[in-house]
Design a protein around this nucleic acid. Structure first.
Length: 419
RNA sequence: GGAGAGAUGGCUGAGCGGUUGAAAGCACCGGUCUUGAAAACCGGCAAAGGGGCAACUCUUUCCUGGGUUCGAAUCCCAGUCUCUCCGCCA
């Protein structure tokens, strides 16, 4: 959410900054609503002030006037509220402004590679896809999931289930023990307001699974990522400067409708309605955002280094970034069966964009009240890491060697094979 | 599901129709004292929004939304949430 006070200082500048995102803002409408809103506020405050004076004076001859004011106030307040909510509606649908470092571009083709790491494995046989491997091992079952649930779900069984759990535990341990994150086991359901805070609502309602509750309570949603619930830990708070930075990690299932991706990655478990992800969230002083982004990204790539998986680091172009981000690095892991890199982590700085929505502030040393900076990143997507391990560590006989760092998490199992 | 109790500033907690943006304590910040620290003492300390170049000033906010009243943190109604006891259950 953008601060109207800042927009007001230079409307055209604001409009231009969003052009790189292919967003065309109706700036005249915003300007007009803002001015009308403030006019109403002024009228309102004048009347309120008069009313206040009357009640202080306790002068009975003025009581009649006071009643009139109350009536006037009612209509003015209603109009003011309506204007304000119209303005807020427009503002809440405008994405964050890209940082200067971000390359200008339209879509994923304009993302820029920053670095490559690890050795791409060579096979003296044709590498199989993860779903071929998994089905042959009898440890991935898509048909069964279709029967019990529907498309884009999967049963992970036996040693692959163990591998999935091991990955999650390994990542958590690393982030907690060496990267300084605090482990959280959060609710997997978020309220409407929480979803608004991180920017999933109102614009992306179609991607969310809404939960039906019996009572007429607030709307509730399954979290599409732990980012939602972890970031909102500090919602509506003025946090103590000494508590910053705050770093949280959680391993949770994530639920996404994947609306609009019909026909994309329909085979295998690349794109599912439900998947596990280890998520990193940082709450920092506003001027520490970009440093924290580098740190966080290194925490994510550190996992891939440990697992011996080849990857590359990309910076997303302005047109490909998420709604709340000012700057995003994607980490892409090598998938032999596709002979290309696929996203396994996305780390973003959201500057004060989410904090403004959540009303999360802190006081700096000058006693100014500022919105915090928020960051989130996958460390890593567990489902996709499972795929990457399977494909990169596959053997000609269809078995899968376990990366050494994971073995302690798997009863020292060295290899997954049939039977 | 049945019966009660409550929701006030960063936290604890008073107030129960008018000078209460709100006592007191804690925390925090500044100062005195001290070789330094602690203690003690003195002082400061809410947020959001509007107006103003500024000094400054105005408005709103005591869970949310209505109502009564010239005037509501305080009275009435509805809702949300939390806690305690009983029942049920992982």
């Amino acid at each position: 959410m953008h601060n109207i006070k800042e927009i007001r200082t230079d409307f055209d500048y604001f409009k231009n900054q969003l052009k790189s995102r292919n967003i065309d803002v109706d700036i005249d409408k915003i300007k007009e609503l803002d001015e009308t809103n403030r006019k109403y506020i002024q009228k309102k405050e004048a009347l309120e002030s008069e009313k206040k004076d009357i009640s202080k004076s306790k002068d009975e001859s003025l009581f009649k006037r006071s009643k009139e004011i109350s009536k006037e106030l009612e209509t003015i307040t209603n109009e003011q509220k309506q204007i304000k909510s119209e303005l807020d509606k427009i503002l809440s649908n405008i994405p964050n402004i890209p940082h200067k470092d971000v390359p200008i571009g339209d879509n994923e083709n304009d993302n820029v590679e920053i670095s490559k790491s690890g050795n791409i494995p060579s096979f003296d046989f044709k590498p199989k896809t993860h779903y071929e491997l998994g089905e042959k091992l009898n440890m991935l079952d898509f048909d069964l999931a279709t029967k019990t649930t529907g498309s884009r779900f999967v049963f992970v069984k036996d040693k692959l289930a163990l591998l999935e759990r091991a990955l999650s535990n390994f990542m958590l341990d690393k982030h907690v023990l060496t990267n300084g994150y605090k482990e959280i086991s959060p609710p997997l359901i978020a309220s409407e307001n929480t979803m608004y805070g991180t920017g999933q609502l109102p614009k992306f309602e179609n991607d969310q699974f809404e939960i039906k509750f019996d009572e007429n309570t607030d709307r509730k949603f399954l979290i599409p990522t732990a980012e939602v619930i972890l970031t909102n830990i500090v919602k509506d708070k003025i946090v103590d400067l000494k508590q910053l930075p705050m770093r949280f990690v959680a391993s949770t299932p994530c639920f996404r409708k994947e609306a609009g991706s019909y026909g994309k990655d329909t085979k295998g478990m690349i794109r599912q309605h439900q998947f596990y992800k280890v998520e990193l969230v940082s709450i920092v002083e506003i001027d520490k955002c970009l440093d924290e982004l580098e740190r966080m990204t290194n925490c994510a790539t550190g996992i891939l280094d440990d697992l011996g998986l080849p990857y590359r680091k990309m910076i997303l172009c302005s047109g490909d970034m998420g709604f709340s981000a000012e700057k995003t690095y994607d980490i892409e892991v090598w998938l032999p069966s596709e002979n290309k890199y696929r996203e396994i982590s996305s780390c973003s700085s959201c500057s004060s964009f989410q904090a403004t929505r959540m009303k999360t502030r802190y006081k700096n040393n000058n006693k100014e009240t500022l919105h915090v900076g928020t960051l989130n990143g996958s460390g890593l997507a567990v489902g996709r890491t499972l795929i990457a391990v399977m494909e990169n560590y596959q053997q000609s006989d269809g078995s899968i060697v376990i990366p050494e760092k994971l073995r302690p998490y798997m009863n020292n199992l060295e290899k997954i094979s049939s039977n």
